[in-house]
Design a protein around this nucleic acid. Structure first.
Lengths: 341, 341
DNA sequence: GAACGATGTCGAATCGATTCGGCGAATCGG
DNA sequence: CCGATTCGCCGAATCGATTCGACATCGTTC
């Protein structure tokens, strides 16, 4: 069931079959019809490996995800889904590659074995070996996230700094004076996870601008960690009245801790965050949050990658998403400051 | 940077380089050392397409997931993660393919273009075109889930029927007489989604065995749907005291509906389900549930697939997981039946 | 009617690996 | 000391597509 077989049965040469399929040279209607009939009858499809070998491209992109061991957050899942979706629309296949820890063989295979035409990289650190590796290899790639030197690459990213700044201003406008920032897990932030650092920077800046008091903590990426984290926070800083966070997975645990401490949301305590819309809406109460457009970002990342593959010499392009905050149910006037509205 | 270049610089023939790398024929230590040094220096890795073409295998498996549009449940995410993980350990790459709806081109490419050595199929229907397609194509595959004719294929699955039966018996033992089964979304069940149908069957059987009263409803796969579904259920069947469910994504919404109806869990109302452990534990209160071992199942699916690829003629193998129920916080004696314990 | 440009097709080279048959040289046994 | 093995390596064929140059046929044009 290869192209030679088709050619034989249609009584033409292999090249003619190829041209009939790709249309890169004219083939008479009659011949084309006969070839297609044979192909249809035998259910022939060109061998992907042979085509990739000759053409020098695989029609496949790599998607590098955080190690599978750690659960994907809802936002990350949104990125994956939208990348897969957009790739499918462009008739590209997606090769999944966990990276980090024991999985570096997989990443190395993807980068180095010419298995993919380009790569989309998730969960990028400020200093990231993988980015360096990709830059050195010359393989086109696009980041969802960026390093400390963002000019070197194409990326789409969430402007965590601006978003957290907005959250703080929003809370300050409501009269809150004592705020906390709940970050992602400590290992991630310590490893130079960009959003974590940028959220810190934005928080610090906004706190300073408004003359507020702020504390920062890291918190594991799940509900139980969120609960114990907030318990501790409330115990050590009873003066707090509001939280800003980028840790969507921990929010439901924070709700729990507040409820157990007898604090109502948003009556006694406010929370504003950055999260996938789907997630924010499905929480109870729905989270006041910047709705990260994960779907669009994934699609844009694929677009950028396709452009880079087509012409690796084009200028790098960047997309920084900073959607406005959707006021849902978790922020309100600071207790005792109702007149301040 | 191909094998010829390496051969030239090492002063040997291309075949010798190949044998030095694969070890399929002896090569002298001295020569091997020289070759490896050159390879190391130039950072050479064999071209995957060329190798796949010659060897007739791609060292890649396909993972067919539900269309990306609909969110993956936590359990599905667990399957994906464990499959990717197990594949990486076996030095296999994973090609992701959404199927259903507009994505059938992607599925078709995977099946037909010899892009993968085998396929793992998720979210299987009782009658499933994709299974028929794979059987016809001769491509090795393993299902996570099974059709109405399970003998035709290898699979791993969750024994929803047994698990729901256990849930019902557990609730009946606690004195509950009026139960409901909350199934997955209506379209999925109508399309012949096996777990949905098997859960119904198990529910019916157990209800009959114990002489109970039962109702069944379908419910969208998210918290909001769970909330409105349970609201309606409570309104139409005020006599209900317990629920069994396979719809993990809807559970938190059910909690909400119960709380708003003034019912405590498990004091006034009990819930038992089938869910990913991680999810069940992180709910508040933690769900009494059969903990589906998603990690192990994904790994086993990969194992079975590797065996099938190695020898497509082996007998089909099946693995039906029916873990015991982990008693957490959401089931208790039926109200007014405390003596019945 | 000769020169010319399309048009349609073919044969052969090519992509980068693996693998088989064979060929010297070294080693061994008798 | 000679024939038989073994060892180490090479050259060529092969996998299944794409693509380039060449060629035959046909219709135009001057």
């Amino acid at each position: 069931m290869n192209i030679g077989e088709i050619a034989k049965r249609a009584g033409v040469s292999r090249s003619t079959v190829s041209y009939a399929l790709t249309g890169r040279r004219p083939v008479s209607e009659e011949t084309k019809r006969r070839i297609l009939a044979v192909i249809d009858e035998l259910g022939y499809r060109p061998n992907a490996a042979a085509r990739a070998l000759k053409e020098g491209r695989t029609r496949t992109i790599g998607l590098v995800i955080p190690p599978a061991g750690q659960r994907l957050t809802d936002m990350q899942l949104g990125f994956v889904a939208s990348v897969v979706d957009a790739a499918a629309r462009a008739d590209l296949d997606v090769l999944l590659s966990p990276s980090g820890g024991e999985h570096d063989r997989s990443f190395e295979r993807v980068v180095t074995g010419r298995r993919v035409d380009g790569v989309i990289l998730m969960e990028i650190r400020l200093e990231d070996d993988r980015v360096a590796r990709l830059l050195a290899s010359g393989l086109p790639f696009v980041g969802i996230g960026r390093t400390r030197h963002p000019e070197d690459m194409s990326w789409v990213d969430v402007d965590y700094e601006a978003l957290i700044t907005k959250c703080v201003h929003h809370l300050a406008d409501l009269g809150h004076r004592q705020l906390a920032l709940v970050n992602r897990n400590a290992e991630l932030v310590a490893a130079g996870y960009g959003p974590g650092h940028r959220a810190q920077a934005g928080f610090d800046r906004a706190i300073a601008e408004r003359g507020l008091h702020g504390v920062q903590v890291c918190c594991g990426d799940d509900a139980q960690a969120g609960q114990s984290c907030l318990q501790q926070l409330l115990a050590e800083h009873p003066e707090l009245t509001a939280i800003a966070t980028i840790n969507e997975a921990a929010v439901s645990g924070m709700y729990r801790a507040l409820a157990e401490a007898g604090l109502t949301v948003p009556g006694d305590f406010s929370i504003a965050g950055v999260a996938a819309r789907h997630w924010a809406e499905n929480l109870h109460p729905p989270l006041t949050a910047a709705d990260v457009p994960a779907d669009e970002m994934g699609a844009r990342a694929v677009e950028l990658l396709i452009q880079r593959i087509a012409d690796p010499a084009t200028a790098h392009r960047h997309l920084l998403a900073a959607p406005p905050i959707s006021l849902r149910s978790t922020t309100g006037p600071a207790p005792g400051h109702r007149r301040a509205i």
